[in-house]
């Protein structure tokens, strides 16, 4: 189909594709090159390749930024939050898609309304609730907050379960299978692809989140990667190569997850947005 287009259009199309691709790849190359240079090299020749690439800079940044701790915190918080969200929201999505009850549509809209509330608005009241519960400066403060990030997941699971014929569950009911078993033995296995998508998308969101860890996780030993990386930027003012190395270390996990699960994320997001 592309080949049938006039040559001029094809050239223009390639020009556009390359321009955008370069604008995305170039900053990464710049970051990698900068990290591998000495500070003197960075200021004297910002474009050149590093004369003697210093890969040790990543180890330095890792150690000085205490990235082992940061990664453990971030991955632990993210894993727990994502698992909880998948469990609660698959259940809620299933209920909204397959059960008839009064107020079903209203409840669905209630769940969606949260998407329009700017998170900065609820900063102070949320903090107060967590403080009352005595959870500030614990992992639970952020995990419980992430548990409230249900709108997109419910939206997505509801659309997915709506695509599964109800006859399946009805047949099982006739056989005398309990509701719990219908949900866990029949529905959840069928929803595995949806769970994978929701899991990956939320992994990226939660891993990258900055605001909630900033206000809840003050103790240095609790910090997440994004938070630790910000603190690192401030305390290594003159060491551009270290700063950029830390930036790269913080972007690595979401990028790796994306490259590994590219198809699933893309298909998942498309389904989620298009089933509206």
């Amino acid at each position: 189909m592309f080949k049938s287009l006039p040559l001029a259009v094809r050239i223009a199309a390639y020009f556009l594709l390359l321009a955008l691709a370069v604008s995305i790849v170039l900053p990464f190359l710049w970051m990698i090159a900068t990290a591998l240079k000495t500070t003197a090299e960075i200021s004297q020749s910002p474009f050149s390749l590093p004369a003697a690439p210093n890969f040790g800079v990543f180890i330095d940044a890792w150690q000085q930024g205490n990235f082992t701790r940061l990664y453990l915190n971030s991955l632990g918080i993210t894993a727990l939050s994502v698992t909880g969200l998948i469990a609660f929201c698959s259940a809620a999505g299933y209920a909204l898609a397959h059960f008839q009850f009064r107020g079903r549509e209203a409840l669905f809209l209630y769940f969606l309304a949260g998407m329009m509330i700017p998170p900065q608005v609820i900063l102070v009241p949320s903090f107060k609730i967590m403080a009352t519960l005595g959870l500030v400066n614990t992992y639970w403060a952020v995990i419980l907050t992430y548990f409230a990030w249900v709108p997109f997941a419910i939206f997505f699971f509801r659309a997915y379960f709506a695509g599964i014929p109800r006859e399946l569950a009805e047949a099982a009911r006739v056989e005398g299978v309990s509701e719990w078993n219908i949900f866990t033995r029949i529905m959840l296995p069928l929803a595995k692809p949806a769970m994978a998508t929701v899991g990956i998308v939320y992994f990226i969101w939660i891993f990258n989140d900055f605001m909630w860890p900033l206000i809840y996780l003050n103790d240095q030993s609790l910090r997440t990667v994004t938070l630790g990386m910000m603190a690192f930027q401030g305390s290594h003012a003159a060491l551009m190569n270290l700063k950029v190395a830390a930036l790269l270390l913080a972007t690595a996990p979401p990028l790796i997850v994306f490259l590994l699960f590219r198809r699933q994320i893309q298909n998942g997001l498309i389904e989620g947005a298009l089933k509206a």
């Binding site: 809620a92 209920a95 909204l96 609820i122 102070v124 949320s126 609730i129 548990f147 249900v150």
Partner: peptide, 24 residues
């Protein structure tokens, strides 16, 4: 049964997102 399915998501969402929004 659908109440049990909805309860966890509803609770977390209401307590940690909607209540703060109403207070705000």
């Amino acid at each position: 049964f659908h109440i049990w399915l909805l309860l966890p998501a509803f609770t977390f969402y209401t307590v940690f997102w909607i209540v703060p929004a109403v207070v705000a």
